[in-house]
Write a protein that binds this DNA or RNA. Structure first.
Length: 223
DNA sequence: GACCAGGCACATC
DNA sequence: GATGTGCATGGT
């Protein structure tokens, strides 16, 4: 890790877009969202709330093994059986309700049909998703971007923490403020939004975890 | 045993 | 609008 091979000069005060280029140069493509289908992305977006991805994956694998990983099956499965399957993801009672709420919305509004959902306007979809109890801004934007190919930048705790600490954002910024901050400075491109968020998560996992490695963080080299 | 992890809703002031 | 709390598992 450390320096970026393709860059010959260091960037002292990189812009938001240049930070993206640095992170991409250092880490390469992250291939997000880690899922086999768009529906799996939507389920994963709810299951991963305030939980690590390894536990989320266990829950998803349980759903897959029990043949529950489809709209129809999640619609008909009992609350008890669903809770049991997603237990490793934590908060399984509340997440069972949230999954059921989402599935109800998915059938009521789009007949459980992904293509119909994708055909809907992004802004309209976002408002609809936020009306579902259990889907907040980050979950909604994750679904929009990673499952439905809609251009919404995903903000998470890492994004706020890292960009606040580096002086780009105030302390404890609101979600909408951060999202606007990024979207105003980046091309409206789902591939860029996709990769940027994934790279921020990668950076945080590698360098900002329990023992911060700020001295070795690739951003520190450039900032 | 404490602390953390890719949030969210709800209560209270 | 800001702040506090419950929700729960598995890894470090």
């Amino acid at each position: 890790m450390g320096t970026c091979a393709r860059r010959k000069t260091l960037i002292r005060n990189p812009s938001v877009k240049e930070i993206y280029e640095i992170l991409f140069c250092v880490f390469g493509p992250q291939h997000w969202w880690p899922a086999q289908t768009p529906f799996e992305v939507m389920v994963g977006a709810i299951l991963v709330q305030n939980t690590n991805w390894a536990n989320t994956e266990r829950a998803i694998e349980n759903l897959r093994a029990k043949k529950l990983l489809s709209p129809k099956k999640l619609k008909t499965v009992s609350v008890k059986a669903l809770a049991r399957a997603i237990k490793p993801a934590g908060y399984f009672n509340i997440k069972t309700k949230r999954l059921k709420n989402f599935i109800r919305f998915f059938f009521n509004s789009y007949n459980g049909n992904l293509e119909k959902m994708k055909a809907q306007d992004g802004e309209v979809l976002r408002r609809q998703l936020l009306e579902v109890n259990g889907i907040g801004e980050e979950t909604a934007d994750s679904i929009l971007l990673y499952a439905l190919d809609k251009p919404f930048f995903v903000v998470d705790a890492y994004t706020k923490r890292i960009f606040s600490r580096h002086g780009f954002l105030k302390e404890k910024p609101e979600y909408g403020y951060v999202q606007k901050f990024f979207m105003q400075q980046l091309p409206k491109d789902i591939k860029v939004y996709n990769e940027y968020h994934a790279l921020v998560v990668r950076l945080a996992k590698d360098f900002c975890r329990t023992k911060p490695l700020c001295g070795q963080c690739p951003l520190r080299i450039f900032l």
